[in-house]
Nucleic acid binder design. Sequence first.
RNA 1: GGGGGUGUAGCUCAGUUGGUUAGAGCGAUCGCCUGUCACGCGAUAGGUCGCGGGUUCGAGUCCCGUCACUCCCGCCA
Length: 593
Amino acid sequence: MNKFRTHTCGELSVKNNGSKVTLSGWINKKRDHGNLLFIDLRDNYGITQCIIDKENKYFKNLEKIHLETVVKINGLVSKRSQDTVNKDIKTGDIEIKIKSYEILGSCKELPMPVFTDQEYAEDIRLKYRFLDLRRKKIHDNIILRSKVISFIREEMIKLGFLEFQTPILTSSSPEGARDFLVPSRLNQGKFYALPQAPQQFKQLIMVSGFDKYFQIAPCFRDEDARADRSPGEFYQLDLEMSFVEQEEIFEVVEKLMKLIFKKFSKKKILYETFPKITYRDALLKYGTDKPDLRNPLLISDLTSVFTRDDVKFEIFKKLVKSGSIVRAIKTENTKDKPRSFFDGIDNWAKDQGASGMAYFSIEEGERITAKGPVGKFFSQDALIEIMKITEAKVGDSIFFLCNKEYEVLKLISLARDKIANDLNLINNENFAFCWIVDYPMFEVDEKTKKISFSHNPFSMPQGEEAKLDISKPLEIKAYQYDIVCNGIELSSGAIRNHKPDLMYKLFSIAGYSKNEVDKKFKGMINALSYGAPPHGGIAPGIDRIVMLLANEKNIREVTLFPMNQNAQDLMMDAPSEITEDQLKELGLKIKKK
RNA sequence: GGGGGUGUAGCUCAGUUGGUUAGAGCGAUCGCCUGUCACGCGAUAGGUCGCGGGUUCGAGUCCCGUCACUCCCGCCA
């Protein structure tokens, strides 16, 4: 028999009435009635009420015991009387009459309460993460994460995938995010990089003939954090398949996502077949390539309207003449919304750094008119044209923005979310997945005006290789795709380019010579030259999947030991300084500021 | 790198127009209480009001700077 416990704190019931038991756990709560003391004992599995009175010689000592002390309690299971049953806990029908106890782990005065729903400052939570993790909500989130990962493993194996580990110490890659670097002792002056993703390795696994690979892969990127983006490290379900076309990857992932989300959430999946939206359409209709499809609002292009002579909105007309565009959001049946609704959105846009958001509502008296500060600038014919483009009816309102395309897209996608939230149009009880497809191979860099890869340079361009028109690079689409759920980008993937000659051609468009490509992607190009199978894959973000399932907005709520926004681990005190000897051994010198 | 928010007791927070000795709940300590489950009651301790400077007869409160945390932009193929 185990010397610490005969049962856990979550399993005793009236069936055990009268039996002698031993429980071990944390003191969750005490209720001291002077001559009678209740102790709620907690472990991973639940809470059991224990009781002792002054007749027992241990009473005085137990009265003094600190919350969160770890104790072993010996006692008798006792059925509670009808009026003292607690329906809120699994073991609420019984309690333990304490015979004796033993302290297994003492506890100092707590820096923060454990048993409370109160929110508290994140730096304290992170510093005392082991206490924070005892709290029910985050404890449950972490358990959920574990179960989701186990489930993914099982399903992937069922689907015939093999799980492999790839190196954590690898080489720095020139494209993409900033690398975390590790100095090499045996090769002084040289550095390893932690993988931003096992991208090249998984392709090499395909070249090695393993056919289907997956891994719950740690990925490291030295970029600034966001609420949904850990600084440093995160996890992907990395997968790759040989001899596949895009559709087969969609099939696998769609099936897997539906299984996961149905198993671990009660929320409804809005589209059983995930809609496929082209990158181009997504930018037009939603202003972003990660649209929240729970949001019914659509964006329209009204640029052409502002070239009409019967539109007198001169500020916008002038901007349009110099290359700006106008995009609009239609809201249905909102003409009678109070002025504060419209002003709220206008002011919000100003807070976002725009010059504001123009709007009017469409009314019909003897003729069609536009009500609102800028309504007078539009003729009836112009309004009818706007109604045609936006599919608006009388009673609807139009919000619009004018700026350079890049700026308009950034703001109007946010405005779409903002307006939908204000109108309470987003049902949080739904999951809306979609695929974004047909990403362009290249884009023009905003700053340098040079042509560069828009996503993954290893993606396969669409169409036949022979017909590829490299004189119009911006028109080349790639077999590149993203999966998005509720406006959150879960992953991106691609059919890879496994042909070295084609790769040289594409890299030359982005300004890389054959020599440079050979140098930077030596291992990859070399491998692809020895019989590479056509292959492709994707890598859904595990952390974000769990966030959606746990209904959390912050990735730290589903991460065991996260770092803070400045990429510091307050509990382990990382990063930390190292000794002179360590530096010397690595051939490094710290430059003092 | 830039912008917003926050910073008062161990924790969560209040603090009026700048005005006496900076308060409450939880936690801690001490006492009372035999059916609670956020037990109840009484008392005590606990404060560099993030830090530095300024304005003022007087600053938690106003101004300037700075630091920390957080959210966002940039960044994240």
